[in-house]
């Protein structure tokens, strides 16, 4: 066990150990940092930018999920600037695709919805960039609706890293990115998908759901996946 050392977060001195991320430290100490692409146990990508924090001496903002602790760090997680950008990120996600809560399976059980409430987004200030996308219901058990996808890539990572199937990946780039199954085929025709349902469990919004759920009723066993990853790591 490496010896702990102190760092300063939001004016508080906290004892940390090498290898921890700033996000882990914050979560363990009751400092609230919103996350979206982060999922406990999955490799972090720093893509959603919601967990941005200020590190003293560094001019750019850094994502807490990939920032490792180091001696003498002074970190601020709740400045006005950061709060403003967090709100703008949530607004950007709403502008990107078609998020209508009233008709969504995940209504009331959605991380994006919760976030919007938390950061205070109640209307759209920026122009939307909506483009109608398809909904793929070819899989016998599950559905993917690209209109609700926020490209957090949790499903891609859980499928590749935890299930090991790598059914999902991303095609194209820029705002044209989409989740794809095998060679951009209908999900139902995928040869790699094992129908394990892990992707559905980790999806933060209503983009992935099981056919047994209906509007406003969705069951997502996120804890089960976290547990699985944790136990596996312990056993390795």
């Amino acid at each position: 066990m490496k010896p702990p050392f102190p760092i300063e977060i939001d004016g508080k001195v906290i004892q940390v150990t090498e290898g921890q991320t700033v996000l882990e430290v914050c979560q363990a100490n009751g400092i609230d940092i919103p996350v979206m692409c982060h999922f406990e146990g999955l490799p972090d990508v720093g893509a959603c930018r919601l967990c941005l924090v200020e590190l003293k001496g560094v001019p750019k903002l850094l994502p807490a999920c990939t920032l490792r602790v180091a001696p003498n760090q002074v970190i601020n997680t709740q400045t006005e600037k950061i709060k403003k950008y967090r709100k703008m990120i949530v607004e950007a996600l709403f502008c990107e695709r078609d998020h209508v809560c009233a008709i969504c399976v995940a209504n009331g059980n959605c991380e994006l919805q919760d976030l919007a409430k938390k950061v205070g987004v109640d209307h759209m200030r920026f122009p939307d960039i909506l483009q109608p996308l398809e909904l793929d219901a070819s899989h016998p058990y599950f559905v993917i609706d690209h209109n609700r996808c926020i490209m957090c890539t949790r499903c891609v990572r859980v499928c590749a890293e935890v299930e090991g199937a790598h059914n999902f990946d991303i095609k194209n780039r820029s705002y044209k990115v989409r989740i794809i199954s095998d060679f951009n085929q209908p999900w139902g025709e995928s040869k790699t998908c094992t129908s394990c349902g892990k992707c559905v469990a980790v999806c933060p919004v209503g983009a992935l759901w099981s056919k047994s759920s209906y509007q406003g009723k969705i069951e997502k066993k996120k804890e089960a996946i976290c547990d699985l990853i944790r136990k596996r790591k312990v056993n390795v």
């Binding site: 893509a47 930018r49 990107e96 490209m151 780039r173 820029s174 705002y175």
Partner: peptide
């Protein structure tokens, strides 16, 4: 820049298009 954005992070992906 909009076309060449890799589409990974939200600000660049959405912001450049907006």
């Amino acid at each position: 820049c909009m076309d060449e954005s890799c589409g990974k992070c939200v600000p660049c992906r959405v912001g450049t298009k907006q």
